[in-house]
Amino acid sequence: MFTYLASASPLHRLNPSTKLLGMSVVAAGATLAFDPFVPASLLLGLWLTTWILGRAPLSNMIRWSLPILILPLPLAFFTALYTDLTRFNSPTILWQWGPWSLAAEGIVIGIGLGLRVSCFMGTSLLFITTTDPTDFAVSLIQNLKVPYRFGYGVLISYRFLPLLRAELETIRLAQKVRGVGERAGFIGRLRQLRRLAVPLLASAIRQSERAALAMDAKAFGAGPQRTYFRQMRLRPRDGMFLISALVFVLGVYAVAIRLGLANLQWIPGA
């Protein structure tokens, strides 16, 4: 969905681990509020940061925004439909049919929850589109002290996913030629899935075996330590970024509370 766009923007130049931590701060900020205002403001902030500081082209930003706004819609709708309305003194019922009723209060909560999910997707948008996968893997190992085998696991998954996608497409066509693929119905779909899965797994296992052999032949895993061509340093700007992220989240909360728009159900009495 989101893909890395190479560039030399200020966001690209940040240490990936710092960026990850900064995004965790924003995501945590989005979890603690139940109103639409806080996640909407955070999402807007993420969007503008990615666009301006990450130098992502506007056309990409618009295309990426669609799934961010559309995918959480079902969640928002069903949350609105199933909100426990007994909590409200006089809920504003907008529509009623049998046991279901849609109230303005429920819609607000639904939108809040949907935007929260959008906000999580916004943090991955910022991170993925501005972080070189190799830098990320090396930073995990060097800055967060993740075991290097695991760090390379992350990197290899970046390599293998597009290969597997291409392989799956070839298998799909290869089977279509045999007259498979026009199956309708649930059982038919399941059978088809199994037919695709067996060759795909067979070739995925073979490919990963080959990759493992090639890596071992180049002495991967020969010792507890290895050196690194890329050095992921922590610089003053990384600290600045973390502080800005924190200030931004706190600022959004301050405004929300001041305007009376914040819904902080987790604070007793709030």
Binding site: R159, K218, F220, T227
Partner: peptide, 28 residues
Amino acid sequence: FQDPEAGFATLTVEDEIAFGLENLRVSP
């Protein structure tokens, strides 16, 4: 090996060449 793409562990040419040197602990 026969199929070089199956054996690559990284994403760019220089990272891939560095990969073996890193494993041998060559100084950066």
